Simulated assay, not measured.
Amino acid sequence: MIESNEQAPQLADMPGDWQRALAVVAHPDDLEYGCAAAIAGWTDAGKEVTYVLATRGEAGIDSLDPATCGPLREREQRASAGVVGVSTVEFLDHRDGVIEYGLGLRRDIAAAVRRHRPELVITLNHRDTWGPAVGGAWNTPDHVAVGRATLDAAGDAGNRWIFPELLERGLEPWDGVRWVAVAGSTTPTHAVDATPGLERSVHSLLAHRAYIEALTDEDPEEYVRTFLAGNNQRFAARYGGRPAVAFEVFPR
C-alpha cells in the first residue's frame, strides 16, 4: 500500500553546512522543473552552485532541427541559470535522447566533480518512473542514465585508480562529496522551503520560453506558475505546511 503524504514521515531539512554544490542533469530545463527555488535560496546565502548538463537539449523541440535547437536551448539555459544566481554552466555534449549509462558518462561526470570539488552533488530522478503522485509516468532514458551515473561518479571522483587518465589532465581526486541529493525522487527524505526562491524559480523556468511554447498551448507564465506551485505544494504536509522542494539525500 502506498502511503499518502499525510501518512509518510516528515521531511528533514537539507544539510546546510556546505559551500560548493554541483548540479548534474541531462537537459536544459531539468533543474528549472526540479529544484530552482532551492538553488535560488542557496545562492542568496552565499553558496556556490555550478551546473553541468550532459546534453544541449537539441532533440527537445520537434519543429526545430538539432543544429538550430541546441544553441537556442543553451542560450536559454545560461539565462535561466543567471536568474537564480548561477554563473557557471557547462555542457558535456552527449547526444540528447540517446545518452548511454556507462564508463564514458561516469568519466565525464567524475571529471566535473574533480574540477569543481563540491561537497553537495545534485541530480534528477534516476528511477524508472516519477511515482504514483504523477500517475506513475515513465521516466526518460536520459534522466535515468545521468542520475545513476552521477550517483556513481560522486564516488569515482575520489578514487585515483578509477579513470587514471583524469590525472593526466591535471584533475586530482576529490573525495569531498558528502551528499548526493536527487530532485524529483519518488522517495524524498529532505526538503528546502520553496517560498523565498519561488518567484525567481518561475522566471528561471520561463527563460526556457522556446521549449515551453513548443510544449504547451497554455500561456507560458500561467503554465509555469501552475506547475511549480503544484509541485512545491505536493510535500507541504510533510514539511510543516510550507511549500517545499524535496530531495532524496544519499550521504557519502
Rank of each mutant, 00 (worst) to 15 (best):
W130M: 10
V24W: 08
V52Y: 11
H94M: 13
R114Q: 00
F235H: 15
T150F: 07
G184L: 11
I109M: 00
A81D: 10
F250A: 11
R252P: 02
E119R: 10
V98K: 08
E58Q: 08
L64P: 04
A40R: 04
L72V: 07
R178C: 08
V84T: 09
D128V: 07
P164K: 01
D142K: 00
A153Q: 04
G102I: 01
L167P: 11
A210W: 07
Y51D: 09
I99C: 01
Y223K: 07
R127G: 12
F227Q: 12
Y223W: 15
M14K: 03
W174N: 03
G82E: 13
L92Y: 02
D65P: 07
V25Q: 15
G97D: 03
W138K: 15
G131F: 02
A207P: 06
I162W: 14
L124A: 11
R117I: 05
V24N: 07
F250R: 13
R169H: 15
L11V: 03
R200W: 06
N159L: 12
V134W: 12
A38T: 07
L103C: 05
E213M: 12
A59K: 13
T140F: 00
A244M: 02
D156P: 06
S185A: 14
S63W: 08
A183T: 10
V182L: 11
D175K: 02
G131M: 01
G136A: 02
F250G: 00
I162S: 13
N159K: 09
D93E: 12
R252H: 11
W18Q: 02
V192E: 12
T186P: 00
A110I: 01
E100K: 13
L206R: 01
I162N: 14
N231F: 12
P243F: 03
R225K: 07
A153C: 04
S63Q: 10
Q233G: 15
S201P: 04
R242Y: 02
D13A: 15
S204C: 12
A110N: 01
H203D: 15
V52R: 10
E119Q: 14
L105Y: 00
W130V: 05
I99H: 01
T186K: 03
A154M: 06
T68E: 13
S80K: 02
L215K: 14
N232M: 14
A183M: 12
R252T: 08
G241P: 07
P66W: 05
A37P: 01
L64I: 02
H203S: 09
G197P: 07
R115S: 00
V134H: 07
A81M: 03
T195L: 11
D217S: 15
F235K: 12
Q7P: 01
E119K: 06
L167S: 10
A191Q: 09
D152R: 04
E222F: 05
R73C: 04
E213P: 04
A149T: 05
A244H: 00
R95T: 14
L92A: 05
L167E: 13
R160D: 15
W179D: 13
E213G: 06
D217E: 15
P164F: 02
V89S: 06
A36I: 03
A154N: 01
A112P: 00
A181N: 08
L166R: 05
I109T: 00
V89L: 04
V49R: 09
Y101R: 09
F227G: 05
